[in-house]
Write a protein that binds this DNA or RNA. Structure first.
Lengths: 197, 197
DNA sequence: GTAGAATCGGAGTGATCACTCCGTTAAGAA
DNA sequence: TTCTTAACGGAGTGATCACTCCGATTCTAC
């Protein structure tokens, strides 16, 4: 259904061929993404488009002009999150201690996802996301993981797919245990210990 | 809202004070639970009540007579699953090898939840479920875990809360990786290794 | 400033869904 | 078999939601 209007955040639209958005339109789009992330995290993906529009101080029409479908909005929010994730991984990759970098990253992602919503929620999937972003995520996680493995801090028998699956599961674990920080910490420790050699 | 009609499956209703259900009513109730579990697992909890009624060969009215609310139906399905889980744990507790029993149980639950839906889905929570069932689950898991810990197969610094959180997270991991069995197995192995001493 | 296009706002639309109501059916006691 | 009544079926109801449409409002190039 959504074939042409597939561009997700602002990347391609703004830089290439298509004329840049008007100033107010850019502002609205950014604000919508911001608000949508917060609202979806707080009330789940069933939060209504109208609520997001109201919260962002725009009309529903504006939401649907920027994101032709609710699913497109969800995907855009998800892509944003993925981008940030990949950036964090990138920033840690050059660390002097790859093992610590890896575990810091893992812990950080899980802790963020415990309050914010789970990493991959409601049918949106790293697989289905634009290949550019997916490639970025896979590359960044791959470097971080490889570094930690070479340093002997992480076992050798896993790759990026296993890492992604564990990140998602551990996020769910943390979300479930979010009422008791001690439980949360001990549960996470088990996954981290399992990752070590 | 749902104060009085809170009985979930058939336990209390049938055995105590209230007159037993008519034969057809009992059949319908059981069939509804069965169908609902399958449908919710396949299409998520947003599957409509009408679809479940149709699949079960009854009218919507019948669904709402047995389960006054969609949420009540979801809870009943969930309680069923929890009961089975506790029974499985009970059956394994008397095993001669408590360590193997524990890991068999964990693996079994996770594998079931990978195709069926996640253990605790969509806002229904072990905490909110009738205390009788909750107690059963906690007792059964507690025995299994304690046995494995005494046998030296599982680390000592976790309890039932951590175990529940990990079961839920590992189920999510398995669900995410359900397309690639090898990934699924390696991810699960990491959690299991983390649980060992 | 002003023209003209891009963008906005929000009432309106059709679809879907949980839940109700009541006429009909059939279980089960006598 | 008959009578009572528990249980059933499914059309109907109101609410909600994603999405559309177009007149009103900016923005921006000149």
């Amino acid at each position: 259904m959504t074939e042409r209007r597939d561009a997700t955040t602002e990347g391609k639209d703004a830089m290439a061929e298509r004329r840049p958005l008007r100033a107010d339109a850019q502002r609205n789009r950014a604000r919508l993404l911001e608000v949508a992330e917060r609202v979806f995290a707080a009330k789940g993906t069933s939060a209504s488009t109208e609520e997001i529009a109201r919260e962002a101080g725009v009309g529903v029409g504006t939401v649907f002009r920027h994101f032709p479908t609710k699913e497109a909005l969800l995907e855009a929010v998800f892509v944003c999150r993925l981008r940030r994730l990949a950036d964090e991984a990138d920033a840690l990759t050059s660390s002097t201690d790859p093992g610590t970098a890896f575990f810091t990253f893992f812990t950080g992602v899980v802790e963020q996802s415990a309050t914010k919503n789970a990493l991959a929620e409601a049918g949106i999937d790293v697989q289905r996301v634009s290949s550019e972003v997916r490639a970025h995520v896979v590359r960044a996680l791959g470097s971080l993981l490889a570094g930690a493995q070479e340093a002997g801090a992480v076992r050798d028998d896993i790759g990026v797919p296993e890492l992604l699956a564990l990140l998602i599961g551990a996020s769910r674990t943390a979300e479930y245990a979010s009422e008791d920080r001690a439980v949360q910490a001990r549960a996470l420790a088990i996954v981290l210990d399992g990752l070590r050699r």
